[in-house]
Amino acid sequence: MSKKRGSVVVASKKSLTKRIYEYRWIYLLGIPGMLILFFFSYLPMKGLLMAFQDFNPHLGISGSTWVGFKHFAKLFTDAKFYSMLKNTLTISFLSLLTFPAPIILALLLNEVRAQGYKKVIQTSIYLPHFISWPIVASLAFLLLSKEQGVINKIIESLGGEAHAFLFDKAWTYPIIVIENLWKGVGWGSIVYLAAISGVDQDLYEAARIDGANKLQQMIKITLPCIAPTVVVMLILKMGSIISVDFEQIFLLSNAMNRSQTEVFEIYIYNYGIASGSTQYSYTTAIGMFKSVVNTSLVIFTNWIVNRLGYNGVL
């Protein structure tokens, strides 16, 4: 004990430069990663200053005129802003409705006896997670298009009428939810499966002796045991309520459903970059608003998770 303490004292007695010198090769290993984060995560932050300017690309940040909170004031009086906020929150809440799906799936998967069969099922349901949104959008198009989509062919062969699902406002949100489920339900179940595998098997043994059937075991043992994981996942999901999967929405949006799919990033992209317009400052302000709200929510929800004593769950 005393020996150990002695060595610690010796270590701290070395000067800082000497200690840094000792670790020089280790720093070298970390430098490329740090440079990437510096250039592509920290350096862009200076661009946030544009939100407080009337930014002119030819003059740069140092030459543009400062306008204070003008763009933020405009933001909160812009009807478009509230429509974007509404669309974002609607899509988020709809995806919140699918929250129980991966839990149910994990509970079902856990009951499968034949390990080989389970493996096949798992392989199939995790697959969509790795498929890019452009391919998902393409599949959706090939399945749903009015002229050639196979779904419409089936409808027609049953005597129904073909429908342009992708260009119908009423179908926009259902399609978003279905795509999310298709792509995410399997992958989402992994975390719950891991939690279920941690449940004490003696509990089931005891329940069996008491005559509890499978369903009772599921409700009375498995669910309460994975409850902390469920709570944490739910809270974390609340933390990302202002973020939607941008690529998905971007690929789904068209002239017909614009009023429902125009979320913050779509507007920022269309008016900040795509149109070659000069709305850099206003769109930066919109993005900054989103980032700040998002960060606050994440910090707040993480604080709640820690406060509830759940930080060891994941």
Binding site: L37, F39, F40, S41, Y42, L43, P44, M45, K46, G47, L48, M50, P57, E265, I268, Y269, G272, I273, Y280, T283, T284, G287, M288, K290, S291, N294, T295, V298, I299
Partner: peptide, 15 residues
């Protein structure tokens, strides 16, 4: 911190 906060699309583009 880079996981918590991002500068956003336009600042990234300008960068």
């Amino acid at each position: 911190f880079t996981m918590l906060f991002g500068a956003g699309m336009i600042p990234n583009y300008i960068n």
